[in-house]
Write a protein that binds this DNA or RNA. Structure first.
Lengths: 203, 203, 203, 203
DNA sequence: GATGAATGAGGATTCATTCAT
DNA sequence: CATGAATGAATCCTCATTCAT
C-alpha cells in the first residue's frame, strides 16, 4: 500500500524523516492531552524543538501532521505485531499467540492508538481512507491466521463467521484502549487476554 | 442518575425543552457532517431556525450543546432499548432478544450514536463522566440479563467472564456503528446479529 | 435650568416618576460596582423589580438611565446642600458653614457622586453639557457666598481669585470622594473639613 | 516600584517596546475620543499601523493596553516633572518651581492625564493598585518639597496640614485637566498657576 | 402597562499559515 | 535551512433594543 505523499520544502530526506519523527512524537503527546483541534501548530513546533516556520518546511498543513501521526502509529503497531508472531507454531498456539500479541501491542501503545482512534475522523477524506486501508490490512492479517487455523482443522466456521471473527478480534484489541476506563478496573492485561481467548474459543 | 443542570435564560420550561430539542437535532446533523469543532454556533442556530442570540438564551456555551446531544442520544438509546425488551421471556430467548434489540437500536440510531462516540471526548470533565456513567448503566442492564441467564442455567460462566461478556456485547453494538464502513460491506443487520449471537453462544 | 426631556411610553406621570426612581437607585448601585459599560439593562431591570421590556417603557436608551442618574444625583446634592445652608448667618460663619455643608453632602453621597464623576463622560454630548451646567450652577452658589463674604469684608481678594476659590472648594468637595482611598487613611471628615478651611482661610 | 509584567509572544525586547509605544500612542488618542469601552482592539491596531493579530502578539488582553497606557503616562509625567525640578534652589523658589512644573506637565500632557484619570477605574484590581501607588509616590515627591520648605522655615504648618497640602497640590494639578472646560474659559496656565500659588501661600 | 423571547450587529480573541530576513 | 513576526479570517459570545402577546 503506497503511502500518501506528504510534500516537504526541505530536500534532505534524512532530515525530513528526523524532523517528522520529532513532530509526530510531540503531536501524539499533545493530541492525547488536548485533542487535535485544541492543539496549536505552535505548540507542536515548540515541543518538537523548532519554530513554526521550520514546521511548515516539513509539512503543508496541520492535517498533514495528523496524517503522519496516524501513519506512524499504524506502522509501529504493524511492526510490533509482526515481530511478536512466530510463523512456525502449530495452529492452536498460533491463534493464541496472535491474539496475545495484538493485545500486548495495544497495551504498549495505548496512547498512540487511542489518539489515532479519536482523531482520525478529522483527516481529509483521502487520508482517512488510507488509514482505513491500513486497518483493513491489519484485520486481513488476523484473518489469515484464522484461515490457517481453519485449514488445520483447529477452528471450524464458515467464511462469514471467520471474517467477523477477525473484525471482532481487531475490535477487542482496540477496546482495550478505548474502554480502558472500564476494563482496567476489573482486569489485568493477562486476565483480559485469557478471558477474551476463552470467549473466542468457547472453552 | 441526576442530570447535569444546564441553565437557561428563558423561564418557560416547555419552550426550553422545545428549543433544545431543535438544537440537538440540528447539532447531531452538523456534528455528524463536520464534527463538533468544525461546526459553528451560528450554523446550529440557523439550522434550528433561530438566531445565535436565541441559541444562547437556552444554553451557556457550545459545550452545553454537545452535552445536550450526548444526554439526549443516551436517553433515547436507553428508552428504545428498554421498549424492545420483554421481561417475561425464558432465558434463551431473553438473551437473543436483548442482543437483537441492542443492535437494532444501534442501527436505528447510527448517526446519533456515532456522533456521541466521536465527540464525547470534547466534553468538559464533569459532563464526560456523566456520559460514562450512562454507558456503565447500559452495560449493567446487559449484565443483568446475562446474570439471569446464568441463574436459569442457560449460560454457565464465572463472574469475570459474565462481566466481560456484557462489555463485549456493548462494544459489538457500538462497532456496528463505528465500523460500519467495513461491516456493511459484508453483512446485513440480521446477518450481523445472527453471527454475533452465534459467536457469543459458541454454537 | 430646564431638564432634558426624557420621553416615556407610559402616560401616567406618577408611575413614570416611581419607576424611574427605582431604576436610578438600582443603576447607582450597579454602576458603582461594575461601571456603566459593564452593567446591563437586564441587570438594572431585574434589580428594579421589573422586566427589560418595562424598563424600555420608561426610557429610550441605556444612556437615558445614566442621564437620569446624573440628574437625580445632582438634584439631591443641591437639595441637601441648600437645606444645610442658613442664609442669616454672618459672613465668617456663612463661609465655614457652606464648606462644611458641602463636604458633609459629599460624604453622605459618596457613592452617588463618585458614580456621576466617573461615568458622566459616557453621556451623549447634550446630556453631558446639561450636567456640566448643573456643576457650574453649584459652583456659582459657592461663589455667591464668597462674594457676600467679600462684600462684608470678611474675605479680601479680587474677582479672579474669588472665582478660582469657588472652583477649588467644589473640587475639594469632590476630592473627598474620588481620593477617598488616600484621604480616609489619614483624616476623618471633621479633620478634613477643618484643615481645608484653614488652608482656604490661611489661618 | 516593580511594574506588572505584561507578557508578549514576541521575543525581541526592542521590538516589543517599539510596538507597545505605537499602541499606547494610538490608544491614548482613541480612548480620549471615545473612551476605553467604546474603542475596539481593531481600531487600536489599525491606528498603530498593524493588524489585530499583531496587537495580540504584544499584549494578552485589551485591559493590558489600558495598563500600558496608564503606566506610560505616569512614567512620562514623573520624568518630565523631575526634569523641571532644580534641587539647588532656595525654599521659596523651590516651592513655586515645583508647583509651576507640575502644572506645566499637566498642561503639556492634558489628554494623556485625562485619559488615565477617566479610564483607570476599568483596570483589573491589581493594575489599579499599581497605578494608585504611582500616584502616591508622586504626591510623596511633592510632600518632600513641602517638608524641605518647612525645615527651612519657609512654610510653617503641622504634619497633617503638610500632608493635605501635598494632596491639594496634586489635585490642583489634575483639575487643570479634568475641569479644563471651566478653567480655560477664565485663566491661562500662567494665571492659573499664579493664582493657585497665591492661594496656597495665602499672599 | 407589563412581559420576556427574539434578534443580530458587534467585539475580543485565536491560530493556521506566510514570508522577509 | 531556520526563524518568528505578521496577518486576518474565523469564531464564540454578549447585550441593547424590539415587539408580539
Amino acid at each position: 500500500m503506497e503511502k500518501r505523499h506528504v510534500p516537504a520544502m526541505v530536500k534532505d530526506e534524512q532530515l525530513v524523516q528526523k524532523r517528522r519523527d520529532q513532530m509526530v512524537k510531540s503531536a501524539v503527546k499533545l493530541f492525547q492531552e488536548k485533542g487535535f483541534h485544541r492543539t496549536t501548530t505552535r505548540e507542536i513546533a515548540r515541543l518538537s524543538g523548532f519554530s513554526v516556520g521550520t514546521l511548515y518546511e516539513y509539512v503543508t498543513s496541520k492535517e498533514d501532521i495528523l496524517y503522519l501521526v496516524c501513519d506512524a502509529v499504524y506502522d509501529e503497531v504493524t511492526d510490533r505485531f509482526n515481530q511478536l508472531l512466530d510463523q512456525s507454531l502449530p495452529a492452536a498456539e498460533r491463534f493464541e499467540q496472535m491474539v496475545t500479541a495484538l493485545f500486548q501491542v495495544m497495551d504498549d501503545m495505548q496512547e498512540e492508538v487511542l489518539v489515532m482512534y479519536q482523531e482520525a475522523k478529522s483527516l481529509p477524506k483521502e487520508s482517512l481512507s488510507y488509514v482505513l486501508k491500513k486497518d483493513e490490512s491489519m484485520t486481513a492479517n488476523i484473518r489469515n491466521v484464522i484461515d490457517e487455523c481453519r485449514e488445520e482443522g483447529y477452528l471450524t466456521m464458515n467464511e462469514a463467521s471467520a471474517r467477523l471473527m477477525a473484525e471482532n478480534i481487531t475490535v477487542k484489541g482496540h477496546m482495550w484502549t478505548f474502554r480502558r476506563w472500564s476494563l482496567r478496573k476489573h482486569y489485568t492485561l493477562e486476565q483480559y487476554t485469557r478471558l477474551q481467548l476463552d470467549a473466542l474459543l468457547s472453552t
